[in-house]
């Protein structure tokens, strides 16, 4: 690990000013991803600006019935918050499905959105990776890509975004707010992550030096009827190989509103808009759910090792929507 300077920011303008235009500086939140990547030599910042003490650690209801979540709210506090659990149960479930109790106590909402892929080529500086060293190549395409992307990827990168939280946030139209030296700004989560294309190293649309200050969730009555389901290669403490956040409002056998987002299928949490369009106004039955999933997955381009993700996501959609339809957010048990 390279030597670095360390400063603790006490207010948002101060943090933004200190980081300023220094491309070698990084904000330090919980450190669960950044410190790990620094040890691996993937990140080599010259300075860290610690933002954990910033007054951004509140979860507050908004006037319209949504929630405003501060950037330094820990994953644990977010998942434990009664209003999160009541209004967006899938969000609480998604957070709880990620990492471990220890890591959730450290990790922050802002950091979660900015975490880097766990693609094993990205985290190994002994191997090429377009995301880490632009132009060096993507060995995952010909190599190990069982947990690679099936949607929105390119020949330059097939890495998936590792966040569980982000999948639920995507389903619920989260808006990311940030601060720069020039003032505040906001980005819908749908616009927050950039397409992979031939620039997989450019991950977000945040301006240089921007500090995420929070995430706003608009009111969404359907979100109270939501669940998150994650599949991984062991029962806990592992990244997803596929996950789905779903919300469903059915009246008289007709889908009035629905939300769907997929995890571990793309370089970003994947909002399944085509599937939602297919669902809304149609019948609430397994065939319709499967057809909706197929509408989204029609664009899937799996590689040789990850064809399983297509039936996996399809089955998860059907299972989760069926569960919501029959049992609501309390689950099947």
């Amino acid at each position: 690990m390279r030597e670095f300077g360390y400063e603790r920011a006490l207010d948002v303008p101060g943090a933004v000013a200190v980081l300023g235009g220094d491309p070698e500086a990084r904000y330090l939140g919980g450190g669960t991803n950044l410190v790990d990547l620094m040890k691996a030599g993937v990140e080599r910042p010259a300075r860290l600006v610690d933002v954990r003490e910033l007054p951004l650690d509140r979860v507050e209801p908004t006037a319209d019935g949504g929630l405003r979540i501060g950037a330094t709210v820990t994953n644990s506090d977010l998942a434990a918050h009664p209003e999160v659990r009541r209004r967006y149960p899938a969000l609480a479930q998604a957070v709880l499905a990620g990492a471990s109790g220890q890591l959730r106590n450290m990790a922050t909402v802002g950091g979660n959105l900015l975490q880097r892929t766990r693609c094993a080529y990205f985290t190994d500086i002994g191997k090429p990776c377009n995301k880490r060293v632009p132009g060096s190549g993507c060995p995952a395409v010909a190599g190990e890509h069982r947990n690679g992307a099936i949607l929105g990827a390119s020949e330059h990168c097939v890495a998936v975004h590792p966040s569980d939280m982000g999948v639920a946030l995507a389903a619920f139209d989260a808006v990311v707010t940030y601060e720069t030296a020039a003032g505040p700004g906001m980005l819908a989560l749908a616009d927050f992550y950039r397409p992979v294309g031939d620039t997989p190293h450019l991950e977000t649309a945040l301006p240089a030096g921007a500090l995420i200050t929070g995430v706003t969730l608009p009111a969404a009555p359907v979100a109270a009827h939501s669940r998150y389901r994650k599949v991984r290669e062991r029962a806990s403490y592992a990244f997803a190989v596929g996950s789905v956040a779903a919300a469903l409002d059915v009246q008289d056998g007709v889908v009035r509103d629905a939300r769907l987002a997929f995890g571990a299928v793309a370089s970003r949490p994947w909002r399944a808009t085509a599937a939602e369009r297919a669902l809304i106004g149609g019948p609430a039955d397994a065939d319709a759910y499967a057809a909706a999933a197929d509408a989204e997955l029609a664009a899937a381009q799996p590689l040789s090792q990850n064809t399983y993700k297509v039936p996996l996501i399809r089955n998860l959609v059907v299972a989760l929507l069926t569960e919501l339809e029959q049992h609501g957010p309390e689950g099947a048990r």
């Binding site: 434990a80 659990r85 149960p89 709880l96 309390e330």
Partner: peptide, 15 residues
């Protein structure tokens, strides 16, 4: 403190 976990079937506070 009443925190739910990933093993908690119903995470809503009313549960």
């Amino acid at each position: 403190a009443g925190w739910p976990s990933a093993a908690t079937e119903d995470v809503r506070p009313e549960a």
